[in-house]
Structure formats: C-alpha cells, structure tokens
Design a protein around this nucleic acid. Structure first.
Length: 560
RNA sequence: GUGCCUGUAGCUCAGCUGGAUAGAGCAUCGGACUUCUAAUCCGAGUGUCGGGGGUUCGAAUCCCUCCAGGCACGCCA
C-alpha cells in the first residue's frame, strides 16, 4: 500500500470541516440540507497558507448567511488534532486558510527513501484494465513527426497510468490491409521494374519516397529478377510481403531507439482473415444498423453522433472499408476485457471520433469507455522556415533522423512538454543546440548536481530515520520537501486527466526548486547534523527527479 | 457552408477543471563563482487573458455571439 501524504492530509482536513459543520448544525447555528462538493487546495499565494477551502462561499446561498460568518462557525468548531494545523484564518470573501506546522512534511522523506523507484505510485487505477493504442503508423513508410509526437505522448501516458496503478497494455495497430497496401504493391512493382531497367509508369497515388526504392534495391540484391516472370497479382503480393516485414521491423526499431516498446502488435489483416469484419457487419445487420444503397453497405452512424453522416462499410465492389475494419478492431479491444480504451490520433482524424464512438455503442459497449486523444499536428522549423513535407516526393524528416539530430531525451521532452491540443512548432536548430535553452538540460542538470554532492559526501549516506529532520527549516528546504511530497498526487491527476504535459512541468518545477535550494543552502557543511539532514533531503530529491525523468523516458545522467 | 482545435507578456507556452494580486522559459537590463557542477541562482519591467454580451459572491476558465489562424468534411486511411 503506497501512501499519498498530501491526499491523506487533505482528506483529514475535509473530514474535520464536515464534522465542524455538523456540530454547528446540531446546535442550530446553521441550516442546510446537504454539504456541497467543495475543494481543499494548495493556494497559489504562499501567504494564503498551506491549504485553503472555498466551502463557506459555496454554502452561503443555501444557508442564507454571509460566507465569512459561515467560515467563522467552521473555524470555531474545527478540531485541529491530527491535521497539523497551527493557525486558521478567514480571508477575502470567505476562504478558510490553514497554516500547518511544517513538520507534517517530514514524513515524506523516509517514505521516498523506502519506496525508492516506486515513489510516486498510487492506486487510483487499481483493477482497471486500460489499453493505450498509439502511433499505429502506416507500415508503408517511415515514422514522421506526427508519429513521433504520438509516440512520446502515448508512451509517457502509459507510464503515468502504470504508475497510478492501472493495468496498462501498449498496442500498435498495423494497417497491413486495404487500399494503401494495394498502392504500396503497385509502387513496389513499378520501382522493381524501373530499377531493373524497364519502362514502367509510376502509379498516380503511389509512394514516392526514397525508402521504397531502397527496399526494392535490397529485394533485387537478394532475389534478382525472379519476380519479373510472375503474374501481376502474385508479384505484388511477394513484394508487399517482403517490404512490409522490412518496414515493420524498421518502425519497431525506430520506436525502440526512442524508448518505446509495445506489448501487442495487432495486425489489421488478421481481422480480414479471421472473418471478424464480416461477423461485426452481420451483427450490425441484425440490429438493423446496416442498409444497402447504390450497391454499397452503409452503417447508420447518424443514429449515434449528433448529426453525423452515415458511413460506407462495404464498397460496391465488395471490399470492406477501413472503417469496417476499425469497428471490428474496437469490438475486439473491448472483447479482450479492457475497461478503458485510449487512442491517440492526429487531429486530422477528428472527424472519425464521433462515428467510432457510435460504432462502439452499436456493437454493444459503452462509448464513454473509449477516449480519443487528438493531438494537433507538428510543424518543423529549420533556419526559421517551415520544413515542408511533401507527399508527392515522399520527403520528410523521420523519427530516426530526429533522434540522431537532437537526441532521444530532448525530443521526448519537447513533444511531451506541450498540451496535445496545441500546435507544436518544433525548432530543429534550437533543439539541436546543446544549450541551456533546451529545458531538458535544466532538469537533467539538477540530477547531475545532486549526484555530484552525494559522491563528494562519501559512501555513508545517512538514513532518514537516523537524522534530525527538524533542522530543515529554511524556506528553500521546506519548499523542496513540499514539492517532493506532491509527486504521487501529480501523477494520479495527470494520469486521470490524460495530460502528460503536467509531468514535464512538474519536472521543471522540481528542478527549479532544487536549484534555488542549492544556491541558498550548502549541503556539505561543517555542522554534522545539518549535513546529514540535508543529505537525506537531497537524496530524496534525486529519487524523485529520477522517477519523473523515467516516466518521461528521459535519462537521468549522473554527470554532465 | 458544417464540425473540431487554437487565440494569455516582444517570442514559445503554463494556468491544478469557477477562486484571492494571471504565471514560467527565452529575449532585455543589473547583480552573485577561491565554496557541494555558473548548463545555476537573485533582482527589475511589460498584459484591453482575440472583441462584445451573459451566468454569480467571484470568469482566462462555463454559455451565447462575432473576428482571426489551423485541421477535417471521400465507396482514402
């Protein structure tokens, strides 16, 4: 059982407030039916205490009393025992501010030491099976910046959910069927002929990238002209088979270099082969959610979305659409028992969300259990200019190139730093610079500094239980402990809200608090007891920083 | 035309889901290394929170409307 000190204390204060209110009610000093949902928060202004609540304002209307009067009643009956409260004040329109004895914070240091790598964990997601599907790039090409953002986001999110106690599966959906594979086959065939010196027209919608040519050259190297004589369908099939395997391996390796590994690689073609798509269409037919028009089969998505249009699931030529496969895929996900299914998609797919949810409902599952995170697209800048990626020429910067250029740490941090909702302008020149402008160095530097102190201190690191923590009474020290204490709550909230960027901000805040401490308090001082206490504090900071960097997939260097 | 996202300091962005005097980084200016790493710290300044209405004790946050930018509206995926 992991503990969350901040949460525990908030709950304690909450209980005492409710009890104080009930006591007042019993004495007839206040009238109300129900206590409204109120918050206990850490005020932005330090002068407003360690915790504050807005309950008095919220109750004013129902109790027909001035909020400050209500606050006074609560304060009068508030039992401080067990809350560490030293001073309670009523402020502004009726906030109640709690000023705590800082000693409550000291519990956190032995806890961090004890939990070590596990510190920050909580159990808010206990017994909840969640799947995060992300990247799922077309296996016909290499990974681009949009995929890279999705990879950083999805992996960090999965890390967060895991830490918050959820049971997490990472999944990559391989689109190895359908139209784009047709095109891929045609492109490969064309390049195959061309590379062997034949005239061959390149398909209109084909893949123009250099990587397709490279693949074909390798195939020729290996198999020579063997496929020239085959009939067209068989030739394309062979070429696709070899090329797909190669592409998927390349994608897998690129992601691995980026620190991302999956539990499941799910192949779209298995849905076609197993009959799962036909089955799901049959199911929808039975529910009268499919109709025929102009030779095609349509799914009544308009029944579900607000005013969404109906969607083709089987073309007039008899082949199922991507959407049909996706319905079968999502049914499959829920069939596997996931309580919560999370997809990370590029914002250009947003039109797909409503009908996907509709489809989930249509096949008998609760659409609320499907969350789609849409991330806005990435624009690359180089030399102050947008790097245009061209579909026609197939030229774009790949994930592998990005990692080579700016490094895994900077790239991951950069992508996760921002809210997925905001457009991301990635300045390659800036990220490339090994300079202080790159925020990831700021955080890593804090970790390296700590390691340096610990090294200088020698091998005997004191244990929290053996030192006098009360000596840690400087503002900078208290602030640092407070920040460390926040981690479990930060993770739990970031996980629940699916907002990994909060953790990047936390990492920066923690580093900043440490740097301030470092400049105002000397750890290796002549006063032995103080030194030991500070060593404990610094070591707890190291553990916390390292754990956060791990969540982000960023390394925690001991030297810089 | 319809739908989704965005609009906050000169620039890049936070803003804990309705709270108190709206915050960071970069950039600018001025300070701090004989001391555990100056890739750091301390100090200084800037805001019609896109505009206008509304909801209430209280709005950057919720609702309406308008403006600007991005994206999507296929028997593509």
């Amino acid at each position: 059982m992991t503990m969350n000190i901040v949460e525990k204390l908030k709950n304690k204060i909450r209980e005492q407030i409710i009890e104080a209110l009930e006591n007042n009610k019993a004495e007839g000093k206040i009238k109300y039916e129900e206590i409204p949902g109120f918050i206990i928060e850490v005020p932005r202004e330090k002068a407003h205490g360690d915790f504050a609540t807005n309950i008095a304002m919220l109750m004013a209307k129902e109790a027909k009393m001035n909020p400050r009067q209500i606050a006074q009643l609560i304060v009068d009956k508030f039992e401080k025992e067990g809350t560490w409260a030293e001073k309670i004040e009523i402020a502004g329109p009726g906030f109640i501010n709690f000023y705590l004895n800082p000693h409550w914070l000291f519990e956190v240091l032995p806890l961090v030491e004890k939990e070590d790598e596990n510190y920050g964990a909580s159990e808010v997601g206990k017994d909840i099976k969640v799947q995060v599907e992300f990247v799922s790039a077309n296996p016909t090409g290499l990974l681009h910046m949009g995929n890279a953002r999705g990879a950083a986001l999805g992996d960090t999110l999965a890390n967060l959910l895991t830490k918050a106690g959820y049971s997490v599966t990472r999944e990559f959906y391989i689109n190895d069927a359908g139209n784009q594979i047709e095109n891929f086959g045609k492109s490969l065939e064309a390049r195959y002929f061309q590379e062997l010196g034949h005239d061959f027209p390149f398909p209109e919608e084909g893949y123009h990238g250099q990587d397709v040519i490279d693949t074909v050259r390798r195939i020729i190297n290996d198999k020579g002209e063997a496929y020239l004589k085959l009939d067209q369908e068989e030739r394309r099939q062979k070429l696709v088979e070899i090329a797909l395997k190669e592409k998927i391996t390349a994608i897998r390796n690129a992601l691995k270099e980026f620190g991302v590994e999956y539990d499941v690689w799910f192949s779209e073609s298995t849905l076609h082969e197993s009959g799962a798509i036909e089955e799901v269409i049959q199911l929808l037919k039975e529910k009268d959610l499919i109709y025929e028009q102009e030779g095609a089969l349509w799914f009544r998505s308009s029944r579900f979305g607000p005013e969404d249009k109906d969607e083709v699931v089987v073309r007039s030529n008899g082949t199922p659409t991507y959407f049909a496969a996706d319905i079968a895929y999502h049914k499959n996900k829920f069939d596997r028992g996931f309580d919560w299914v999370i997809n990370i998609w590029g914002a250009d797919h947003h039109g797909h969300v409503a009908r996907m949810k509709g489809a989930v409902e249509a096949v008998g599952y609760n659409p609320d259990n499907l969350t789609v995170i849409l991330m806005q697209l990435v624009r690359l800048f180089r030399g102050g200019e947008i790097v245009r990626m061209s579909k026609r020429t197939g030229k774009y910067v790949t994930l592998t190139e990005l990692v080579e250029e700016v490094g895994k740490d900077a790239a991951r941090y950069f992508f996760v730093m921002r809210n997925p909702d905001s457009h991301l302008d990635f300045d390659l020149d800036l990220a490339k610079q090994d300079s202080a402008e790159n925020p990831v160095y700021y955080v890593q530097y804090a970790h390296a500094r700590i390691c340096s102190i610990l090294k200088a201190a020698g091998e005997n690191l004191p244990r929290a239980v053996n030192v006098n923590l009360k000596l840690l009474n400087e503002t900078a020290e208290i602030e640092l402990i407070r920040k460390i204490a926040d981690l479990p709550d930060e993770i739990a909230q970031a996980a629940k809200a699916l907002e990994p960027h909060r953790i990047a901000r936390y990492a920066h805040d923690l580093a900043s608090t440490f740097h301030t401490f470092y400049n105002s308090c000397r750890v290796l001082t002549d006063e032995q007891e103080l030194k030991y206490a500070r060593l404990v504090l610094v070591n707890a900071t190291r553990i916390t920083l390292r754990n956060v960097l791990n969540l982000l997939g960023v390394s925690a260097p001991e030297r810089m």
